[in-house]
Design a protein around this nucleic acid. Sequence first.
DNA 1: ATAAAACCTAAACCATGGTTTAGGTCAAGG
DNA 2: CCTTGACCTAAACCATGGTTTAGGTTTTAT
Lengths: 147, 147
Amino acid sequence: MTYAIGDVAEKFNLSISTIRYYDKRGLLPFVSKNKSGHRAFTDSDLKMLYTVCCLKDTGMSIEHIRDYISAVMAGDTTIDDRIAMLKDHRETILRQQAVLQESLAEIDLKLENYQAPDAHTFVQKEVAYVNQEKARAGLKKPFQVKR
Amino acid sequence: MTYAIGDVAEKFNLSISTIRYYDKRGLLPFVSKNKSGHRAFTDSDLKMLYTVCCLKDTGMSIEHIRDYISAVMAGDTTIDDRIAMLKDHRETILRQQAVLQESLAEIDLKLENYQAPDAHTFVQKEVAYVNQEKARAGLKKPFQVKR
DNA sequence: ATAAAACCTAAACCATGGTTTAGGTCAAGG
DNA sequence: CCTTGACCTAAACCATGGTTTAGGTTTTAT
């Protein structure tokens, strides 16, 4: 009928202490405790936790998640607040997606260069150019990092 | 011919202290200093910094970025290492994209529910169901968060 | 020539998001 | 019944990624 914290930790791939930490920070006010003081998660609680994880995984801060959950707990008078928060956060997710996309493009470009047949020549020419640019600006070659 | 740290900070939307911090952590060994000890960024340096930012923006730790940059500085004998690191990181970016996608779907679902004409009824029924589930499990209603 | 703005280092400080430890209580199997 | 594993809280601890401060030097504009 209910799940203990260990079950939930496993299902969600969170550590037990992370779940307790979330609870302490006000992210899980919906979780009840049984007579002996153990947290007892219902299926609805798991759905709410899933939402919490979605917000966390997309970079929402614990404080903001708390505000959202707090609105949920306050009942149907806060629907407009929730919509506003979710719409805001939706925008930040779209921005993150754009950033990932752009960075992935750069990384793929590097990979193409490095995997090309002429990669060694390419890299050597690049190094030469960089050094030339430094020389033109009257700068010494930077420290060569030892490995 | 070269850019001062302030120019670079503005161009990349980083704080000056972040750039210095990156340098201290070994992310910018390619940046030379002029006779008076000021950092002088060439155009090539900006390209390298762009790569650093792409790695940072996609969640690579400073330590791993340092390892990558250190391989770049070591010359064309480390091309295979670089390929391995970039391929690894590429996988983590794809995982991040999947996570964002999935979480965005959940958030969009919530938004649809909340923006539906029957949102209030929907929410009220949900609350009723959650409480019923707690009751069935012999649990008290959880603390209602005050706002 | 001088003041203000921009740069420098080193080191202390801080916010966030946990994890670990200590000292217990509870529950399920032998 | 009694031990072992799972749970509890409170509080200390930690890693990461910066930011801020203090005490200077350098460049630039007047």
